[in-house]
Simulated scan of single mutants.
Amino acid sequence: MDQETANALFDKGAFLLFLDAPENLEFGIDLATWTVGPRFKGIKIIPPGLHFVYYSGANRPGQSGGVRSGFFKFFESQEIVVKRWDEASEDVFPDSAMDLEQLGRYRLSKSHAQSCSSVRRVSTHIRDFDANLGIYPLTATAHHPTPVYPRWLKLCSRISTKRVGRVLPSGGILNAAEAESRFSENGLRAEPKGKGPAKVDQHALRIEFALIDLKKSFPVGATGSDVTKYSLDKSFLLRKVLQDHFENDHKELLGELQLSFIIFLVGQTYDGFEQWKTLVQLICMSEEALETLGNTLFVEFVECPEDFFTDAITSDSFLRASLVSLVANARARPQAPPALRSAIDGLVEGLLRRFRWDLMGEVRLREGADDEEAWGMEEGEDAPVVVEL
């Protein structure tokens, strides 16, 4: 990157000052993660928009890092966000703990200090930190050979400020050890491998996912044939979920799909996986969802860790059955949009090349079976209900 380009980005991008970070702290933003050194003071040239900043306790000899914590934040152009590490809690101080004296130490403007806010506009003072600020990985580097930013944009393209506020009402804060949701209450959540700092009430960090019951996918009072129909095709449930939780806005539903995936994949919080799983099944088993919702799933499948995907396709998992349903439903629509057909072809080819999984072969097997055998691929409590008449 030449100096002229760097200066232009410096003047437009946002900044995160991350002060008093201990050496060997695991620190990340979006899909990029580092182990920081003693001079680290934050990140510069952050593109405006949604980002997820996360960290875990410093690694010690013979120990792995702590439980991951972080926060979602919509950065504005030229915005400066200030966070300070609290060694006692192994997390950042709350914004309310950043008093006027502390802010004065970091050379923030008088008006900023008076507002007791952790945000201000860029001034010449930020350049004093320049040598200690890492650069947001906009382009390919030795550490990140594939540019992070384009991948991140695809993962969060539908997430709105409103959706973050509804799912994470604590101000976008996420802590893998302390977060709870309806999945925690139902005993579906996996126990964390580490123990994080218990410094706040768990209810303050509650994740408010939309309530979706895949087993109740048919209208009240439905006949036996309708129960079978709407258990196989979840389009009725999809319409009800959109009306009840997303104001009939497909983009908001996609936003929760993306947010739950990031909470799981990057935030390392299992509750996110459960909601993502529910939404994936709902979309893949809804014929009406293909044209408006299908493409977003393909982006997320690409970002799944290789071991996660390998385990999923070598077992009778929900993901294997969902992908077969998705492709079969798409093939059943001869007038499918070219973009959707292209995305499905890319998914099929990618799975065959990367994992040697002949997804299309399984789809053809299902298309040649009767309905009961075909839909029997979905096992367990989420299997479709078939009513014998």
Rank of each mutant, 00 (worst) to 15 (best):
F355I: 06
F218S: 03
L265V: 02
H144I: 08
D358W: 04
E26Q: 08
P94A: 10
R320K: 15
S117Y: 02
A88P: 01
T314E: 13
E252V: 04
K216Y: 10
D30V: 06
Y106M: 15
R120M: 14
R121W: 11
T292C: 09
F93W: 12
A374D: 06
K162C: 11
R354F: 12
M360P: 04
P192I: 08
L242F: 05
G376A: 15
L254N: 02
G350F: 06
T310P: 01
Q114S: 11
L174A: 09
G361D: 10
A88G: 06
R341I: 10
G267W: 01
K193V: 10
G267I: 02
E185I: 05
D358E: 12
R39D: 15
L238A: 05
L153T: 08
L16I: 08
L359K: 01
T139M: 12
E381K: 05
E288Y: 03
F355W: 11
Y106C: 08
L108K: 01
V363M: 06
R354Y: 13
G350C: 08
D233K: 04
D95S: 15
Y230R: 00
D311G: 15
F74S: 10
L365E: 12
N59V: 14
T292W: 07
N132R: 13
S231M: 06
V167P: 00
Y106G: 03
N24F: 13
G368Q: 15
V119Q: 09
E373Y: 08
L16Q: 02
R353V: 14
S170T: 07
N7A: 14
I43F: 03
F318V: 08
S64E: 09
E4N: 05
I45D: 03
R127F: 14
K83A: 14
R105T: 12
S317Q: 04
K12Y: 10
Q281I: 03
T269V: 13
F27S: 04
D95W: 10
T146Q: 13
P334Y: 06
H245G: 07
G224Y: 01
F298G: 00
R158H: 15
V220G: 07
G171V: 04
